[in-house]
Each structure stands twice: as structure tokens, then as C-alpha cells.
Design a protein around this nucleic acid. Sequence first.
DNA 1: TCAAAAGTGTTAAAAATACACCCATGG
DNA 2: CCATGGGTGTATTTTTAACACTTTTGA
Lengths: 229, 229
Amino acid sequence: MSYTYDYPRPSLTVDCVVFGLDDEDLKVLLIKRGVEPFQGRWALPGGFVHMDESLEDAARRELQEEAGIRPNLMEQLYTFGAPERDPRGRVVSVAYFALVKLSDHRVHAATDAREAAWFSVYDVPRLAFDHADILATAHQRLKGKVRYQPLGFELLPPKFTLTQLQRMYEKILERELDKRNFRKKLLAMELLEELDEVEQDVSHRAARLYRFDHKKYKQLEKAGFNFEL
Amino acid sequence: MSYTYDYPRPSLTVDCVVFGLDDEDLKVLLIKRGVEPFQGRWALPGGFVHMDESLEDAARRELQEEAGIRPNLMEQLYTFGAPERDPRGRVVSVAYFALVKLSDHRVHAATDAREAAWFSVYDVPRLAFDHADILATAHQRLKGKVRYQPLGFELLPPKFTLTQLQRMYEKILERELDKRNFRKKLLAMELLEELDEVEQDVSHRAARLYRFDHKKYKQLEKAGFNFEL
DNA sequence: TCAAAAGTGTTAAAAATACACCCATGG
DNA sequence: CCATGGGTGTATTTTTAACACTTTTGA
């Protein structure tokens, strides 16, 4: 390495905004900080980037270490670099955005001596650093993106009813949708595979289960198709 | 600062993808590198982030220093952090995306002992580092975003004809638009201020000039209006 | 008077919206 | 048998898309 420059360097971290969905609300995963600064305050999971790992690898590693979570869907959100955002000095943080099926991850919420928990995004405690900004950015991104990319399926179990699907969109978009129009639109895309199964243990007529056809979506996408709610 | 951790730190740079538009094409600003690595190769303008400046400030400073350019519109694009992207060692780069009115910036193209030039985005030389990826990401972002945000106006002079506006969209979207439908749609938004002026020095009927009403757009946006082409 | 681009209206097709009822099931 | 949510069809409005001719101006 003959061309090394040497400038003082900011520290580099990753932070993860992990969303999940349950019957009530859209939820976000938070970790209670065990060390200063902001000891005892809730924060987004995250930590320092190692020298030999990619940014996304760092985000996945931290999530695994701090909360035992391995999301299917993870993408870069935004990089936060205001000079005063961390009292330890100059720390630039690359934020990631992830969606998980809460059913898979409820149990693991507390792990590893750290305290981890899911909070409603509408009722979040005071957060460490600028994590409230990061969360707000992520929430906005989710609301914007869910309408023109089939992200939402990552929040649902693999088999779901059309009503579950509709509720998911209603919770994220924060508005009601018309049942018939919703179903017409979704089914017209032909991306939902109708299964020979119905939901179990309900005290009324059981709804049919569907599965999102990721493979077909990839094909259609290549051919210029645009998902749009 | 009592809580300082010390990890080995990646270097942190910013890179800028600056787009401009002329009669032929969408153009991107490149700088010829004067030092190793990749000496003599064309690259995106950029450089190391100082310890006391924000990321966007760093991007603006580098653009000013390397090309004498101060864009009106600049936003964060993506952060590139693959471990092997820079032969000098671990360098993470926060990429920015900017649009300028070429008419304002043609002259300044070469400054400061460095060689700077505008290239058609469809005919770019081999670039240093992973700058081809960064450019591709930026180009994709521009194509996607121009349809649902009034970005394109930043590429045109303050006063423009409807035909200029249409050509701009056609060049960015890489498809033809219907003249009447285009005009109807744009004028229906009531965001174009019709001026009492027409273009000068043309050898045919002179077209009326319009101005984009940024202030009105801000208002409408707050009220829930969505720009959409 | 001609070349070159400006400007303008209408129609048909498709998509979005609004809306109300019957059905199947379990308790 | 009734409460609960599942499931379906149609009419109206709005939006989009396709398309051709007249006007103005300078050379």
C-alpha cells in the first residue's frame, strides 16, 4: 500500500432500524444501552464497523450480536454525519433499514445480557444520540417505499390472508383502504399465489391463505413491471 | 470527552455526481486525477472529510475546490463501503448527487490546475475506483426521482420554454413524450408561472417563457400535494 | 412564401373510486 | 340462530393516451 494518506479520521458506525408488525402496531427494535454515553437510554442497535467487513455485514453482525436477529430484507437508509451527533467525538453512522417477521423474532427480543424490546413506533421512549432522527427517516422511507415496492410481505408470515395484507398496508400508510378495491388491485397483479389452505382457529368463516410469489415478481420486474399499490 | 473508544478507523471521503444538461445530452462532471492511485484517470470530484465539517459541507467544499461549482440542489446519494474499493486501504465514501444549470457552470469547467470536464453520461471514460458504480447509482436515482419530484428545473435556466422542459424530461427518462399531454399535465399543476416574455433570437415563432414557482410548490407540498409527471 | 416550431381540443380506453349485499363458519 | 368477518359486482368519475391541424415568425 504505497499511496496511504493520513488524515485524522472520524469513527464509523452502523445503526439499524428494524421494523416488525404485530396485531396492534408497527414496531421498532430498540436496545437499552449498557455503557456511557447515554447509559440506560434506549437506542437503535448498532456499533463500530470493523476494518475488513462491508457496511451491510457490519449492520448484520451487530443485529445478530445485540438481538439475535437476521433480517431477510435489509437496505442502506442514510448516513448521518453531523459533527456533534456523538459526544465521544466525530462519529459518522451509516444507518440501515430492515424488516422482519415478528413471529420469527419475538422470542429473541432479549438476548446476550443486553435488554432488547419492540416498541410501537408511535410510542417510543427518548432515544440516545440522534436516533430519533434516524428512526423518523426510516419510518418515512418505509411509508414511501411500501407503495411502490413489495416490501410489506417481509413483515407478514409466509402465508397470509388478504385481510392481514390489507391491515399491514393500513398500519404502515396510516389510512384505511377499501376492501374490494384493495383485493381487486392486488389479485390483478397475479403475484399472490392462492393456496389450498385457510386460516385456522378462528371463530368465523376461515379466510383463504396466499403466498407472495417472489420469483415471479423478480421476472416481471426485469420485464419492466412496476409494483404499485 | 471521557467516553472515547479507540478502534482502527476507515478513512472517510465524499464523492459528488454532478449532472448538467445541454442541447445534446445529460452530462456529468469529471476530474482528471493528478496523483496516484489512478493518476491520469477520470474520476468523480471528491476528497477526504474534515473532522469539523458535516458530510454535505465536505461535498460542497470539494466541489468548490475542484471545479468552482456551487450547486443549488445537492442531496446524499448512497454510501459506498466495500472493503476493497480503494487500493490505499479501507476508505468509505459518502456519495452526493447534485444538479446544476450548465449555463452557469460551463466556464468554470477547468480550474485550479486540475482538469475538469463535462461528459455525456452515455459516453464516459473508464473511471477510477468504483466511480462507475457510483455514477450508475446516481443516474438511476435521477431517472427515478425526476418523475415524482420537481428536480428537473434545477437543470434548466430560470426561464424556460415548455419545449425545453419537455426535452429535459425526454433526455432524462430516455423516452418521447406527447407534446399536448405533457403541456396539459404540467400546466394543470399550476406550478409554472407564465411570463410576459418569449425566447429571443430564434428563426421561427418565439415560444413563451415560464418560471417554476418554487414557493408555491413548497406550500402545496406541505398541504399533501404530490408532484408527478 | 416557405420552413420551423408554437400552440391548441377532442375522443376513446383504462384505471380509480365509491358503494351494498350475500355467504360460510363457530359458538 | 346470530355474530363475525369473508367474499363478490357494478356504475360513476377521473385519468391517461392517442391523435392532426392551424398559427406565428423570421429568413
